[in-house]
Simulated assay, not measured.
Amino acid sequence: MTRHHLPGILAMAAVVLASNILVQFLFGNWLTWGAFTYPFAFLVTDLMNRIYGASAARQVVFAGFVVGIICSLIGTQIMGEFGPLVTWRIAIGSGAAFLTAQMLDIAIFDRLRNGPWWRAPLASTLVGSSVDTALFFTIAFSGALTFIEPSNDVSWAGEALPLLGIGPMVPMWVSLAVADWGVKLSLALIALIPFRMIVSKALSGKILA
């Protein structure tokens, strides 16, 4: 780790911390405000991967993972109206999803880094985001995994409702996952703009240096 990696570490820590705070606030029926900040973790990872390599990206991801664990542990100790702000299922799902998805993002990006500039960040983020959403919502809310935390009643998440209020009948947590996934995919496309700008500036600076 060098001083050049510090901005990436701080950015990842800020994204994870902000997302853990904003996830407590609803946005509409299917999302929280945290859904709009968390996807930028993939942007930070991809920037570090492109500019400094896969090893630096993994260091940044590990720093974000540690921050996420700390936030989850604190959340399990804070009591809200319906119990702890963070249940153990949510904590486990969040950690597992983050680490798995980010490491997958790094591996895919590294494999595609020599192609067109947009292919590696777009493909790695799309795959990583999909895995992240699937793992988190399944672990945190699926009725099939109640054995993880038997004392945590997640029956509300299994209530059958129209998908996003308009589609076929599915458990509520599936609608939450689909809405979250849609935001991630949208932001993956938008993030290509700052990715291109930051990489171009950073690499030109390295060449001049």
Rank of each mutant, 00 (worst) to 15 (best):
P84M: 09
Y52F: 14
I69A: 12
G64M: 09
I74Q: 01
W88C: 01
F42S: 09
L43W: 10
F42Q: 01
G64T: 06
D46E: 07
W88T: 05
G80R: 11
R58Y: 05
G83Q: 11
I69D: 01
N49R: 06
F98M: 01
S55F: 13
S55T: 14
S72M: 10
T45A: 11
L47K: 06
R58S: 11
V86C: 08
A91W: 00
R89T: 06
L85Q: 04
D46V: 03
S55A: 15
G80S: 12
T76I: 13
I69V: 15
A56R: 03
A97R: 07
D46F: 06
I90Y: 08
V67R: 02
F65I: 01
G93H: 05
S72C: 15
T45H: 10
F65L: 10
G80Y: 11
T45M: 05
A63T: 08
F65D: 04
A101I: 00
A63H: 02
A96W: 06
L73S: 14
P84S: 10
L73P: 12
R58P: 02
A57L: 02
G75A: 09
I69K: 03
A56H: 06
I78N: 11
F62D: 02
L47C: 08
V61H: 04
V66Y: 08
G75Y: 03
R50N: 11
A91R: 09
A41Q: 14
S55D: 15
P84A: 09
A41P: 00
F82N: 14
A56P: 02
I78L: 15
G80N: 12
L43P: 07
A41T: 09
A57C: 06
S94G: 15
Q59I: 00
G95E: 03
A91F: 00
A56F: 02
G83V: 10
I78F: 12
D46N: 14
V67P: 01
R50Q: 12
M79Q: 15
R58Q: 11
A57V: 00
S72R: 03
E81N: 13
V60Y: 04
A96F: 11
F82V: 06
R58W: 00
I69C: 09
Q59F: 06
N49A: 15
Y52Q: 10
R50H: 12
T87D: 10
F40V: 05
F65W: 10
W88P: 05
M48I: 02
F65R: 05
M48V: 01
M79R: 13
A54N: 08
F42D: 06
S94A: 14
A63C: 14
A96S: 13
G80I: 12
L47G: 04
L85R: 02
A97E: 07
F62V: 10
L47W: 01
V44L: 08
L85M: 10
I69Y: 03
Q77A: 13
V60L: 09
T45E: 04
D46H: 04
T45N: 09
G83N: 11
A41K: 05
L85C: 04
A41M: 14
G93M: 07
E81T: 14
F40Q: 03
G95Y: 01
L43E: 05
V86D: 07
N49E: 11
V66K: 07
I70D: 00
C71H: 05
L43Q: 01
F40A: 07
A91C: 12
V86W: 01
I51Q: 00
V67N: 06
G68T: 08
T100S: 12
V66S: 09
L47R: 04
Q77Y: 02
I78S: 08
R89C: 04
A97V: 04
F65A: 07
F65Y: 14
